[in-house]
Amino acid sequence: MAEMAASGESPEILFWVGCAGSFDDRYKAVTQAFVKILNKVGVSFAVLGPEEACTGDPARRAGNEFLFQMQAVANIQVMNGYNVKKVVTACPHCFNTIKNEYPALGGEYEVIHHSQFLQQLINEGKVALKGGGEFKGKKITFHDSCYLGRANDVYEAPREVIKALDVELVEMKRCRTKGLCCGAGGAQMFKEPEEGKKDINIERTEEALSTGASAIAVGCPFCLTMMSDGVKNKEREHDVKVYDLAEMIAKDMGI
């Protein structure tokens, strides 16, 4: 972003990478896949790089409002400084926070999740899918992320993206408004669960596996981690893969 601003360019969108997209080895692949798509389509975009900080979502959900606002206000300073208008992110937690919670602190942007952005690109014909790629005809199930679904009522965009791959989309019993959490929201990603009889991601993975799907599609870095761990725990990683939507599209495009 800094480079573009220095040369007087103003990109169409700011791609908000998020902490998982920057540091988590598995999710870095998603960031890369999404960037490849953007480059291929020729979208003018920028990233903040080292100027980006955590949105503060886990701090706020864990109760530390002060720390959340420190992160949020600093981020808003940076984004307003670059006159950012439109933000795209591959993380539903960042999406929710920037879209719904930054306005109260002076950060007003158009914020869209990468599933919505991908759907737009597909609808506009900018992403040309082969339709005969490696997913064709395969059974795929989609795991709703809470912060995309119930929190923001985005249920159809990710499904439209998956359907564009010419796959058989199979729903779990608990889907859309009734979707079961992967167990990582509300800052649970950063601590061990409370004592119970089972881990939430195992419960959800069992449900996903029971659909007979050969791949579980997600649109959230935390869900990706939780579902991947669940599949490993069930020793099914050889025949059931967990993908982010952007990875599936990039694979189909052959990039």
Binding site: S22, F23, V47, P50, C54, M70, M189, K191
Partner: peptide
């Protein structure tokens, strides 16, 4: 996690300068 966020602006303990390594 709070401490990580205070010192390195991420819930995980990574250097902020590594954010663009991907």
């Amino acid at each position: 996690m709070f401490q990580n966020m205070e010192t390195s602006f991420s819930p995980w303990k990574f250097a902020p300068t590594d954010r663009f390594n991907w």
